[in-house]
Nucleic acid binder design. Structure first.
Lengths: 221, 221
DNA sequence: CGGGTCATTTTTGAATGCAAAATGTCGTCC
DNA sequence: GGACGACATTTTGCATTCAAAAATGACCCG
């Protein structure tokens, strides 16, 4: 229903809103990796004082987006290539779980949402939108598991990985491949073939992870 | 102060210490489910003001231990039997992952730690200690994956499940069974049989989850 | 005697203020 | 000319304070 949200903003508690806005700032790449978090500036921008902002900082630190250095300010958590491997490894496991559960538990409504998300990816209006639509698709599958614990963990991982999207998006070759894999995923989903679906999702994740690592390596080289 | 807990107290940032102490209070069951969090009291007890305490509250809310009700205070997140199922489902997936990875990646040091933890369980000094030793054992396996992302997620789940320990501990029958399953787990681990280890861990988790659900149902009935 | 309204108290959420720590600047000395 | 150290500035972390919202209770009226 609602928004693929260009910016998560109006939902839930005020505290949650701040957390979301702050996370959006980080995900948008407005702040370079390792950059100091400009508390004062963000307070101005959000029209709040330091107290609620710092509460949000602590939460985002716990989520892994920010690094808290005692008495020396917070910085944007730098992207560590080793950790990227760990993130994808974890995500692969969750994808498998999602595949097995979604195949069994998806309601008609879930299926419709998944189909819709998949269809939207067939003709992405622009490359920049691809990432958001892609996330929408995978999230629709995660929703179909009807396991909120899994969903939350998966969401968090997705967002952490999202920080790397700029290195993925720019590869049209990989985008094409990715859509092909989605087609396969949909075949398995429509057949409600749980093991096949799980395997395809895991493989898809693995390939994406490899593409990311390749690009990261290429950049740093 | 009757805090025998040799655990989470003096480590890391002051902020982290507060989070840990507060989480310990919740895990110790000092506050009933759904009970209001007595901010003022905890401030006194920890010798801090409300600002850092509230930062910790937000973090614990994000971790799922506390429920934040706008303008109406925070409460201890009530245990929802349905969510317990979701927690164990998720934990089962992670256990599988742990099994597959630990079998392959465990160093000699990891193996030693795992053996030690297992041996400690053979003759638990008292039933009350069983839970802690049990967690130690499973955590040792998680450590052997050398994936910090997985470890953090697993730790969080363990702690959330830990809130239910009182319903598990009191079943000596289940404790015996559990140790038997651990024996099998060790056989698979020593042989570095990744698929076998994964399956045994998952099965062990499933059985534990069922025992918890049974007890929960018995209580509410 | 019960139900409802309004004032009082308590609690919550956020802004401000303050002490300590870190950072940056500049002068001095080698 | 460069390195070191004292001083000023900024930033951080926390306590305190303040306004608004909810809980409590007193009172009135039917």
């Amino acid at each position: 229903m609602a928004a693929p949200a260009p910016e998560a903003s109006e939902a839930g508690t005020l505290h949650e809103q701040i957390v979301n806005k702050l996370r959006a700032v980080l995900l948008n790449g407005e702040l370079a990796d390792g950059a100091r978090i400009p508390e004062a500036q963000l307070c101005l921008r959000f029209g709040i004082s330091r107290t609620p902002l710092r509460e949000a900082l602590k939460v985002l630190a716990a989520e892994g987006f920010i690094e808290l250095r005692p008495n020396r300010g917070s910085i944007v958590a730098p992207i560590d290539p080793v950790e990227v491997g760990h993130l994808f490894e974890m995500k692969g496991t969750l994808e498998q779980m999602i595949g097995r559960l979604a195949a069994v538990r998806a309601t008609a409504e879930d299926a419709a949402r998944i189909e819709r998300a998949h269809a939207a990816l067939a003709s992405p209006p622009e490359p920049a939108a691809y990432t958001a639509l892609n996330q929408e698709f995978h999230r629709a599958l995660a929703l179909a598991t009807h396991n909120p614990v899994l969903l939350q963990s998966y969401d968090n991982l997705q967002k952490r990985v999202l920080r790397l999207r700029f290195v993925v998006n720019e590869n049209p070759q990989r985008v094409l491949e990715s859509f092909g894999e989605h087609e396969g995923i949909m075949v398995a989903f429509r057949a409600r073939a749980r093991l096949d679906l799980a395997e395809r999702l895991e493989e898809h994740n693995r390939l994406t992870g490899e593409a990311v690592r390749r690009t990261l390596k290429g950049e740093s080289a």
